[in-house]
């Protein structure tokens, strides 16, 4: 029986970590974008959530960043970590052996301040564009037994419904950086999600109306950084290819 189990694989020795963080408040005329350096001691199992709060509480009360659930569920804390878009709350400092971590806000979204960006409005536009809701003509009576759904189809829909709109696929997408109106892997996955949903009555022609253009399904250059970085491991590559084949015939 294990009397002592290691809580995390990295009971680090409290080494010094060096953070370089972009500081900029676009609404403050005196503010200029610059990298600020902070040094802190690593604690066991430290994540960027813990580290950034420590920096704010002890070193720089003005540092802005976003966290909500701190458990990789809500999608609030996407940021560029040494050049890669990651969920900060799930990123362990122990995974950076040289102890140097550079943090930048995600591109493609409007900057609020420092590491904080506006993803909500972007996602809202996407949701409206792809009409991110079930389209069904018949209204169901909620006092009656629900319509049966094939269990496998329900599972398949759930699989794609797991997207948390964190924006990491957008921040890693070359098309999105060149075309601000590109719907992104998040939007194309949403289309695939409703296509898979047996309750949604939309046809391929309906979906073509929504995303059958270069700002939609035909804008993707298949660089696939979206799938490389998706924190939910969604099958973005497969679903984009699948939808593109379907819609080119629509």
């Amino acid at each position: 029986m294990p009397k002592h189990k290691i809580m995390t694989p990295d009971q680090s020795s409290g080494r010094e970590l060096t953070f370089e963080i972009l500081k900029y408040n676009p609404r403050d005329p005196n503010s200029r974008p610059h990298l600020e350096t902070y040094k802190i001691r690593e604690t066991p199992g430290m994540t960027l959530f813990v580290a950034l709060n420590m920096i704010r509480e002890d070193l720089d009360p003005d540092l802005a960043f976003d966290f909500v659930c701190r458990a990789g569920i809500c999608g609030s804390c996407g940021m560029m970590v040494n050049g890669k878009p990651l969920l900060a709350c799930r990123t362990r400092t122990a995974d950076y052996p040289d102890g140097r971590i550079r943090l930048m806000p995600m591109p493609a979204f409007e900057l609020i301040k420092d590491l904080s960006v506006i993803t909500g409005q972007w996602m809202d536009r996407m949701s409206k564009r792809v009409e991110s809701w079930v389209h069904a003509k018949e209204k169901q009576d909620i006092t009656r037994i629900e319509k049966p759904v094939d269990p496998d189809a329900a599972d398949a829909t759930f699989e794609l419904d797991r997207c948390i709109e964190c924006g990491i696929c957008v921040a890693s997408c070359a098309t999105a950086l060149m075309r601000p109106d590109f719907v992104g892997a998040v939007g194309l996955n949403r289309i695939a999600r409703f296509e898979a949903d047996p309750q949604d009555e939309r046809t391929d022609a309906d979906f073509y109306e929504l995303v059958g253009d270069d700002a939609g399904i035909f804008g993707c250059m298949s660089l696939l950084a979206c799938e490389d970085h998706c924190p939910k491991n969604l099958p973005l590559q497969e679903k984009i290819a699948y939808m593109r084949r379907k819609l080119s015939k629509a």
Binding site: W133, V134, A136, K139, Q140, I142, T143, R144, E146, K147, P148, V149, D150, P151, A154, D155, T157, F158, D161, F194, D197, Q199, D200
Partner: peptide
């Protein structure tokens, strides 16, 4: 009623097999 309404709104509830 709430759960059946949510099913209509697209919540992909796990289904009985």
């Amino acid at each position: 009623k709430a759960i059946r309404e949510l099913a209509n709104w697209g919540v992909p509830w796990s289904r009985v097999r």
